[in-house]
Design a protein around this nucleic acid. Structure first.
Length: 203
DNA sequence: ACACGGATACTA
DNA sequence: AGTATCCGTGTC
């Protein structure tokens, strides 16, 4: 994707009509805007709708139906361990459908608001995990199926900065297909949920 | 190390 | 209805 424009531009549906792994990698360094708050995405994971046992679509008919009725760029949100909301983006229309789980970001705007919601002062603890991120941004089931490509206050944006260095690693916390290196992090970022274990590739 | 806690999809 | 499972966080 081009990053040549002078000002940050909302990521369009075409971005999410490619392979989930490409989308997950290219969202690293992108900005996530949510109301008054925003941050730079530093950690994502890719999940494939087919042949990926860690993806909800593998076992849940309701998620396969979600994929059917939504376009790429729609938010898929679910409750994990009965405690935390998880923010995913639907990727659809390329060679394979799937999701990108947004796992962590470096906060840039609305810091005080996020500190209040999280109940912590440390900036690196505000959004350094998928559950922390949704708590800081107040993302809930009410945002499920939200179109993240049309509303300027709930979207992803790409700036014109130089390409970032991305490290791939194994996905976190899953029991099946756990060895796929489909977790992507911004190299050296202190805002990730966990340190990288086995760096797989760089870009 | 462990408690916390709800949606989803099975079984019957 | 009951049961197994689940992409986490905070505190012990």
């Amino acid at each position: 994707m081009k990053r040549s424009s002078a000002e940050p531009v909302i990521i369009s549906p075409a971005f999410f009509q490619r392979e989930p792994l490409v989308c997950a990698r290219e969202l690293i360094g992108a900005e996530l805007v949510w109301g008054e708050c925003a941050g730079v995405i530093v950690e994502t994971e890719a999940y494939l709708a087919e042949n990926d046992e860690a993806c909800h679509a593998f076992f849940r008919p309701s998620v396969r139906e979600f994929i059917e009725r939504n376009r790429g760029g729609a938010a898929y949100i679910y409750l994990n361990y009965g405690v935390h909301w998880m923010l995913n983006v639907l990727v659809k229309g390329g060679s394979a459908d799937g999701f990108v789980l947004i796992r962590a970001m470096e906060p840039t705007r609305g810091l005080e608001l996020m500190k209040q919601r999280r109940g912590v002062e440390s900036e690196r603890q505000l959004c350094s995990g998928p559950g922390k991120l949704t708590q800081a941004l107040v993302i809930t089931k009410a945002d499920d199926e939200r179109d993240l490509c049309s509303d300027p206050s709930h979207c992803f944006r790409l700036g014109d900065r130089a390409p970032v260095e991305v490290v791939a690693d194994e996905r976190i916390g899953i029991t099946r297909a756990a060895d796929f290196p489909w977790r992507f992090t911004l190299r050296g970022s202190p805002f990730v949920s966990r340190a990288v274990k086995r760096p797989f590739v760089d870009s």
